[in-house]
């Protein structure tokens, strides 16, 4: 069960060229939220919007397509999206919240729904939780070091960042491409990521990521009844182009392999925590 429970999995991309232009892969999150906003499935979505610093995301509540478009693209650093979860039901006055996030953030959403500690009114207001695949994340200083020192590129001039094919890639506005092997990025990883046992956002309504699908396309897992409802309506409205996952390369086998690798490696880290000290260990949140 390294890929979690799901009803269906496809390769997909948005049919909206405007969305695809700045999207990381198939524009799934932006397109799905844009459709859900238009249809009233959600009345606002918590997304990682731009901030004052280059490539540093800031959680925002998007209530228009323009705000969603501004949040396109992967920022390989932390965006505390859950910090707005309660506020969305308060001063923003939302009744149906959309939220995007990494696997850990989907876990936070579900935990808040089942065990709402200081989270009054949150449980019944989550309308659509979209998860993204995530292998690991970096603190902003780590990202700065990787891009500015190792790739030798100014963050301000970067157009797109990507991790794929064993490398970390930086593409500049003026067309240059820099890449470094992933092994030099390991020391910059956020230590908290090393105990994470979820690769493909198992707890989301719909989860999506690049692995498994060709460039410009995304792999999409439709997991819950809620997710299926929104997804099938969006397909019906012509929002997405899809292909059966079996017909694309590299397909689900690669997703499964990477998920297994992540879980195996991190489970080992977790196990080692139990005997970290002499005669004592470190805490295990899963116990």
């Amino acid at each position: 069960m390294v890929l979690g429970n799901y009803k269906s999995v496809v390769a997909a991309r948005s049919t909206d060229n405007e969305i695809l232009k700045g999207a990381q892969d198939g524009g799934i999150v932006t397109q799905l939220f844009a459709y859900a906003l238009e249809e009233g499935i959600i009345d606002g979505a918590i997304v990682a919007g731009p901030s004052d610093e280059p490539w540093k995301p800031e959680p925002v509540i998007a209530t228009s397509k323009a705000e969603l478009l501004a949040a396109r693209g992967t920022r390989y650093t932390l965006s505390p999206n859950i910090s707005l979860l309660k506020e969305a039901t308060r001063s923003y006055g939302l009744d149906r919240i959309g939220i995007v996030g990494t696997p850990c953030q989907m876990q936070a959403v579900r935990k808040a729904q089942l065990y709402p500690i200081g989270m009054r009114d949150v449980p019944d207001k989550i309308a659509l939780a979209v998860g993204i695949f995530c292998m690991e994340n970096f603190p902003y200083q780590g990202l700065e070091a990787m891009v500015e020192d190792h790739c030798n590129v100014k963050l301000e001039s970067v157009k797109k960042l990507d991790i794929g094919k064993g490398k970390f890639w930086a593409y500049t506005e003026r067309g240059a491409v820099a890449q470094i092997p992933l092994k030099v990025t390991h020391k910059y990883e956020q230590p908290g990521c090393h105990v994470c046992l979820d690769y493909v956002s198992n707890l989301a309504d719909v989860s999506t990521g690049s692995v498994g699908a060709p460039d410009g396309w995304s792999t999409v897992f439709v997991r819950t009844k809620n997710g299926e409802n929104a997804w099938s309506k969006a397909i019906g409205a012509g929002c997405f182009e899809t292909k059966p996952i079996e017909e694309v390369k590299p397909g689900l086998d690669l997703v499964k392999k990477l998920a297994t690798d992540k879980i195996t490696k991190n489970q080992k880290t977790l196990d080692e925590r139990a005997t970290f000290g002499v005669g004592k260990g470190l805490r295990n949140p899963y116990l």
Partner: peptide
Amino acid sequence: EIVGGEAIHPSNPRVGGMYKNITPRAREK
């Protein structure tokens, strides 16, 4: 909850005003 941040022990008031104004949607609500 909308204006005060929380119905029991409101979080929005602070010395000098409020932490947040509300959105037009919240006002409609």
